[in-house]
């Protein structure tokens, strides 16, 4: 069974005025352990698609089935709990709660999952080690570089043991060195932990790391190649 199974999903903005078909009848299956990039020019519908896959937005039509559960009809509060336990998120920037340290940011998501204190503390430290931030456990986001902040975000996304991790242009605000670092680290984690990654990007260096590249154009999949 696929981790993500998208069936005939469309998203139409402004259906009453001038309709914009941001996503147009997309079908996509993502298997466990994939490291897949959604690519395409700006405005091609990458963010809209990822938001729908992540349960942040409702499709206008079609089904979004995550690990066998169709979430396209979930109510808000159920969707929030579903995201907490099944999906990890890394956004373009400002992912973290500014008043919490790296450690606390990673622990926070497990606190919401009601994981006991010792357990979440130990796991947060372990994950921050994995992303190479064991020396910055007590730093606030404002005391970290953009790349370091994104690594904390990756550690947080992993902390809840999600079915997959979504990342919408995670490197858009990073320099090339930090981009290499972050992507290398994500690829390592993908291999080591069999964590499933789905990320949107239009950065060639990021695309190069992907093992499957799905190309969107005007909301449609025009190419889907595995390497």
């Amino acid at each position: 069974m696929s981790v993500i199974s998208i069936k005939e999903v469309s998203k139409i903005y402004n259906p009453d005025k001038i309709p914009v078909k941001a996503v147009d009848k997309v079908d996509l299956e993502i298997e466990k352990g994939e490291f897949t990039a959604i690519v395409g020019p700006s405005g091609s519908g990458k963010s809209t698609f990822l938001n729908i896959v992540g349960g942040l937005d409702n499709p206008s039509s079609g089904a979004v089935v995550i690990d066998g559960v169709d979430i396209s009809t979930f109510k808000e509060s159920a969707l929030i709990d579903f995201r907490l336990n099944n999906i990890g998120f890394v956004f373009q920037s400002y992912n973290l709660i500014p008043v919490l340290s790296s450690l606390e940011n990673v622990e926070f998501i497990m606190l919401m999952q009601k994981i006991p204190k010792e357990q979440r503390h130990a796991r947060a430290i372990e994950l921050l080690k994995e992303v190479g931030l064991e020396k910055h456990l007590d730093r606030k986001p404002s005391e970290l570089s953009g790349g370091q902040q994104q690594r904390v975000a990756v550690a947080r996304a992993l902390a809840s043991r999600p079915k997959f991790i979504l990342a919408d242009e995670p490197t858009a605000n990073l320099d090339s060195h930090s981009t290499e670092n972050l992507m290398g680290m994500m690829a390592d984690i993908n291999k080591k932990e069999e964590a499933t990654f789905l990320f949107a990007t239009h950065d060639q260096r990021v695309i190069d790391k992907a093992r499957r590249v799905v190309t969107l154009e005007d909301g449609r999949i025009v190419k889907d190649e595995k390497r």
Binding site: G54, I80, R83, L84, N85, F89, I109, A157, S160
Partner: peptide, 16 residues
Amino acid sequence: SYEFGVMTAIGTQKLR
């Protein structure tokens, strides 16, 4: 509001 957006996205209930 952005921060609240991120927090709800990653799974924080609005009541929280």
